[in-house]
Design a protein around this nucleic acid. Structure first.
Length: 925
RNA sequence: GGGCAAUUAGCUCAGUGGUAGAGCGACUCGUUUACACCGAGUAGGCCGCUGGUUCGAUCCCAGCAUUGCCCACCA
């Protein structure tokens, strides 16, 4: 029995009912879909929303677009997987939680809860790391639940059975494996660097998390003996270790290499003047103070001049206050110190002048806006521009490309397409200029870095010295030096800037090495190892050497290969015969007194302490596409596919088809996923990237809680219906461009939902109790049916081209202004059977043209009316009415399919009335 | 300092080498049972400016102006 539609569409009741129906059907999961064996998979990864709040309207945009794709793919018969998840969102969540604690009047310092901190800061904090972790964990789990329900309200057709959280053990395991592999490949390294330090949050940030703002500050001109330099940071003068000029600067030639004496606030000072290309002679006076501890550029200058000047002298602590040898300025905040120091300098007459309106860019924390303090900190970095070191035992298909090149080539080759296309340029530009990525965060909430340290004094004495063995080939080495090449050593390192050959080294000399890649001699690291020669030995043969030293054991870089490497090369045998072997016993003079272990599980042995730091969230979310799919292993009975062969999710659904996310995280997330995905799987993580815009309010303002203009998608959905909200978010939303959303617009699409409802209601009202098998359609009927098929094809094409705004608009326009306004209107007379009668008003039927449900044929209006006509005419009328109805129903059905990806609830509800017991969600498109 | 975009109706935005489009808003008319959360209409545009290419430019090219965004270690 055909059902009728209520006069009023109740979206609230319907949406809840329909979602339950869908979820109960299991069709959100590809395992339950009635797709053919040959069906192609279609995979979309949901960008995991941060589990530190509820969904906002921006999420709703992405969710809607993904749902459109997923539903469309499903209707197209594809094995569709849309995998949902949530992100622990390390730093972001900590910041949110920090504010929450503050509001509750609790000590927000607890945030850092680092009871296992190696830096002995425990006393500052009231909560242990574990306690804090537990609280944030509960906090995120609560939020996660809320978000899941919000997703349901939006109609998200994602596979809940495969839902993942970034802190699930299997995800963490994959992340650990990646890190271990990066470490073994020489692409993850720990190094002391000047990092972007936020004094408020007390953590380092990556370059991307730095927000530069323009500021006007005084530029101070300070006299350092005979020289004058310009600086905006006089307070860092206590950390100065040198002065620098450009090597080509004629004015200062005579000072280069000299030590100058200067007056300082705390007494006389001596600085060496060095020459470095990084100095711009045109800025200020062309003289710069070198403060390696508190300026990233100065730190690099120091690294280039390690032999000449001393290194970082820390005078600012983690809270942004002066510390160390700073006299009476100790404990002052940087801003206060700047004022006081400049006054003191003026007093003793070394402040020459002050430009008070110097405009420059200042690095601030993107979250709190506080000025970042560059501080030297040992951190984990990912090397972006170097090739992975070959690991001999590793048979995997290594592309041998740097992470950067993996990212560039994927897009250049077209394996990944980015929409809109112009963002490909932006992406390329960013990658070309990329620098190493700091992945350490000094916070609690996150995936703890699987690295362990222990003091080197804990282990065998012999290992406390790092040995390096050299074959000295006098002639060749000498030539290399004469040619101006600094490289002397071919294998493990090179003395940097040592204008000596090996013969002239003596005990006590300090030399710098950097690691070079075997074979290619590419520099693997800008990590410089400083070593002191503690003894020098000379041997005539390898045997003689081995009688004294166990080379296999003592060589730090390639322990098992050393001897065979040597013996395999006849050239060395010759050289050894001629010159012998020099062995330099080298003592590490860096502060690197720690041994590092990286692995999935803690190392065995005494004294290991795990790194208290956690990964940058993007390091783990950058692995999301494959980590989630790998989590469902082969043979997992929950996901047995329909064909007998069991495929793991990774095999079946990777690479994914589309990544839809906001353009604001192109670098943070998309680029990292590309690089890490290719690095781990040798395949692109997704074939297409669709970047949608950000949602603005009707005045084009960015939404923010402080402005009070945030739109709660759920509130809107409750008022106007999820379908209306979805439509409003899709129409007029072009890739890469921000979208303005207003209540008017949403209301407009609520009206559309009503329109769909009413038009369908009208069609159903005319539904006959039974339809004959054969219906003769008129030319007009055929034309109209062809019309909807054409519209549907156009919509499909738009969706396939990621032109969702056009697809939605087309569907909208067709339904309302073609189907409802024109076709239905023009069919009304036929439904009433009017065409067969003279125009006399008295003869017109008063009711609907076709038998209603519950009415017997004899009582139906058609028959009542048809009493006045003869039998064959009656048959003709009936046949035409049926044809008209059939046409309308066909068009309606096709329209519902066409609308379903965009407005799933109302379309499903009506479809259910037309076809009781069937679901539109898996109806063939 | 580099780069990317935008500039079209009152507003928000689509779009195309040939007659300029939608939604909302405005105005006029219309309540015949699908729908007033409606229908039929109307008005409103040197498609930022200046050149060039072209038979023809809102579209392609160059320059300019304005706006926005992204990137960048000149202290």
């Amino acid at each position: 029995m055909p059902e009728t539609l209520e006069p009023h569409y109740d979206h609230l009741k319907t949406e809840e009912k329909i979602y339950r129906l869908w979820e109960g059907s299991g069709y959100f999961s590809p395992d339950k879909l009635p797709s053919k064996k040959t069906a192609k998979p279609f995979t979309v990864m949901m960008p995991p929303p941060n589990a530190n709040g509820s969904l906002h309207i921006g999420h709703a945009v992405g969710i809607t677009l993904q749902d459109v794709m997923a539903r469309f793919a499903r209707m197209r018969g594809k094995k569709t997987l849309w995998l949902p998840g949530a992100d622990h969102a390390g730093f972001e969540t900590q910041v949110v939680f920090d504010k929450k604690l503050e509001k509750e009047g609790r000590n927000s310092d607890a945030l850092h809860g680092r009871s296992s901190d190696t830096e002995g800061r425990r006393s500052r904090f009231t909560m242990s790391r574990e306690e804090l972790w537990k609280e944030i964990w509960d906090f995120t789990q609560t939020n996660k639940k809320v978000m899941e329900n919000q997703l349901r309200k939006l109609g998200a057709s994602c596979d809940w059975s495969r839902e993942k959280f970034t802190l699930d053990p299997d995800i963490i395991k994959t992340v650990y494996e990646t890190f271990e592999r990066l470490y073994k490949d020489g692409l993850a390294y720990r190094d002391l660097r000047v990092v972007n330090w936020c004094p408020k949050h007390r953590t380092a940030l990556s370059d991307l998390e730095v927000k530069y703002i323009e500021r006007e500050d005084p530029l101070y001109y300070i006299k350092y003996g005979p020289l004058t330099l310009a600086t905006v940071r006089p307070e860092t003068k206590f950390g100065d270790t040198a002065l620098a000029v450009n090597p080509k600067d004629k004015r200062y030639q005579k000072y280069i290499g000299k030590v100058i004496e200067a007056r300082g606030i705390l007494g006389p000072l001596k600085f060496k003047v060095i020459a470095d290309d990084a100095i711009d002679p045109k800025f200020g006076t062309g003289v710069v103070k070198v403060t390696p501890a508190h300026d990233p550029l100065d730190f690099e200058i120091w690294q280039r001049h390690k032999n000449e000047i001393s290194g970082p002298k820390v005078i600012i602590d983690e809270s942004g206050r002066l510390t160390g040898e700073v006299g009476e300025f100790k404990g002052l905040k940087v801003s206060e110190a700047r004022q006081k120091v400049s006054e003191a300098m003026e007093k003793i007459g070394i402040l020459e002048k002050t430009d008070s309106h110097y405009k420059h860019q200042v690095a601030t924390c993107y979250k709190c806006g506080n000025i970042l303090e560059p501080l030297p900190k040992p951190q984990w970095f990912i090397r972006m521009t170097e090739k992975p070191r070959q690991v001999s035992s590793d048979k995997r298909q290594a592309s041998g490309k740097s992470l950067r090149d993996l990212g560039i080539d994927a897009v250049k080759s077209g394996k990944i397409k980015i929409y809109p296309k112009r963002t490909e340029k932006v992406y390329m530009h960013w990658l070309k200029n990329i620098r190493d990525w700091n992945i350490s965060r000094q916070i609690v909430w996150g995936i703890r870095i699987p690295a362990w340290f222990r003091e080197i004094s804990n282990i065998k004495d012999q290992r406390s010295k790092i040995w390096d063995l050299k074959i000295y080939d006098g002639r060749k080495t000498f030539e290399a030096l004469k040619n101006g090449k600094k490289r002397v050593e071919t294998r493990a390192g090179k003395p940097q800037g040592a204008e000596k050959d090996w013969r002239s080294f003596k005990i006590g000399d300090v030399i710098n090495f950097s690691l070079v890649e075997e074979g290619t001699e590419r520099i693997l690291s800008n990590e410089v190892i400083t070593k002191e020669i503690v003894s020098i030995h000379h041997f005539r043969t390898i045997d003689e050497l081995l009688s004294k030293f166990d080379v296999n054991e003592i060589h730090p870089y390639h322990p098992t290969e050393y001897r065979s490497w040597w013996e395999s090369r006849p050239i060395f045998k010759k050289r050894i015969k001629k010159y012998g072997i020099w062995a330099f016993e080298l003592q590490d003079v860096n502060e690197k007194t720690q041994e590092i272990y990286v692995g999935i599980a803690p190392p065995s042995g005494e004294g290991w302490v795990q790194d208290p730091d956690v990964f940058d969230t993007w390091f783990s979310s950058g692995q999301w596409p494959f980590a989630t799919l790998l989590a469902n292993k082969k043979g997992d009975t929950r996901h047995v596919t329909r064909d007998m062969r069991r495929k793991s999710d990774f095999e079946e659904f990777y690479p994914t088809d589309v990544m839809a996310t906001g353009y604001d995280i192109l670098f943070f997330w998309v680029a990292r996923m590309v690089m890490l995905g290719l690095y781990r799987t040798d395949k692109v993580p997704f074939k297409n990237v669709y970047l949608h815009g950000l949602v603005r309010d009707k005045d084009r303002q960015k939404m923010s809680k402080s402005k009070g203009n945030v739109v709660d998608p759920l509130g809107v959905a409750e008022m106007y219906g999820a379908d209306a909200l979805r439509m409003a978010l899709v129409v007029g939303n072009t890739p890469g461009n921000d979208i303005a959303i207003s209540e008017d617009k949403i209301r407009g699409y609520r009206n559309f939902a009503t329109k769909i409802w009413n038009a369908s209601r009208f069609v159903l009202m005319n539904r006959p109790s039974k339809m004959p098998k054969i219906i003769k359609l008129s030319a007009e009927d055929k034309k109209n049916i062809a019309g909807v098929i054409k519209a549907k094809a156009a919509v499909a094409k738009y969706i396939e081209k990621f032109e969702f705004h056009l697809a939605a608009e087309k569907a909208y326009h067709y339904f309302w202004h073609t189907f409802a306004d024109k076709i239905i209107e023009s069919y009304k007379p036929r439904l009433r059977g009017e065409e067969f009668f003279a125009s006399g008003a008295a003869m017109r039927p008063s009711g609907h043209g076709l038998p209603q449900s519950g009415e017997s044929e004899a009582e139906s209006p058609v028959n009542i009316h048809a009493r006045d006509v003869n039998g064959s005419q009656k048959q003709k009328i009936l046949a035409d009415q049926l044809a008209a109805y059939h046409t309308l129903e066909t068009i309606l059905l096709e329209s519902l399919k066409m609308l379903h990806p965009f407005m799933p609830f109302v379309s499903e509800e009506i479809y259910g009335k037309l076809n009781p017991g069937k679901l539109l969600i898996i109806e063939k498109w």
